[in-house]
Amino acid sequence: MTPLTPVRTLTRITLGVACAMAVLCGLLGALAGGWVSAVVAASIAGGGTVVGSSLTRRRSMASFSAAQRSAEARGFADGLAHGLLIGVAQYEAAVFPLSACGVTTAERDSRRAFAYRVASEEKLPEAVRQSAATVLAALDEADRHRAKDAMEKFSRVVHDQLTAPSQ
């Protein structure tokens, strides 16, 4: 089964509306003047609907495409923000391990590099990027209290990013 794309959806809606208009006008034509009137009314209504929708198709498809691009960009930014939150939390766990021999230096450096790499993405919203920079600076200095406060604020910023209404 082929996927239902915006073009196919618009085509199906157009055909459905054209058929409904043809049937409705055909019935009204049959009631008003017989079968000849029914055929003429159905042909004019169905054909007019198809022609009218064909004329507005470009505008409709442009609107669909813009909405799709906006949703893709928003979804990508939300995914990056969530991934950054996870990366920073892993780096925090490496900076403040539960046991003395829990994390090697190489693992800590790897988690730090990953967090910084994701934080430098251009598609991240500025508020998320700035909040992450605050957390990363506190973690680099191994300041537990400041890192905890910054991580709480960062979590709220990411949550607000993920739950904000689309524009």
Rank of each mutant, 00 (worst) to 15 (best):
S54G: 11
I13V: 13
R57I: 03
T2K: 15
C25W: 09
H82Y: 04
E107G: 03
T9Y: 14
Q68S: 09
L124Y: 02
R58Q: 14
L84N: 06
V157P: 06
A32T: 01
Q68K: 08
L162Q: 09
A94N: 02
Y91R: 07
A66F: 10
R12S: 11
G26K: 04
L4N: 15
S37N: 05
S53H: 11
G87R: 05
H159R: 15
R69T: 06
A20H: 09
D143K: 09
A127N: 09
R74S: 09
V50A: 10
P6C: 12
L136D: 07
Q130W: 06
A77V: 01
R112P: 02
S37Q: 08
R129D: 09
R74P: 01
V157M: 02
R58M: 08
M1Y: 07
R59T: 15
A138I: 00
S53N: 14
L162Y: 01
A113Q: 12
G75W: 04
A115N: 07
V135T: 10
H82R: 08
L31K: 08
T49E: 12
D149K: 06
P97R: 02
L55F: 11
A138G: 04
V135F: 03
A67H: 11
L24R: 00
A137W: 03
T104Q: 08
K153D: 15
S99R: 15
S37I: 00
A150E: 07
C25E: 11
C19Y: 05
P3W: 12
A127C: 06
L98H: 04
M21Q: 04
S37A: 12
F114V: 10
V50G: 08
G102N: 13
T56D: 12
A73L: 08
M21E: 05
E152F: 05
L27V: 09
A142S: 14
A93K: 10
E72S: 04
T9K: 14
S166G: 03
H82Q: 12
Q130G: 02
V51E: 11
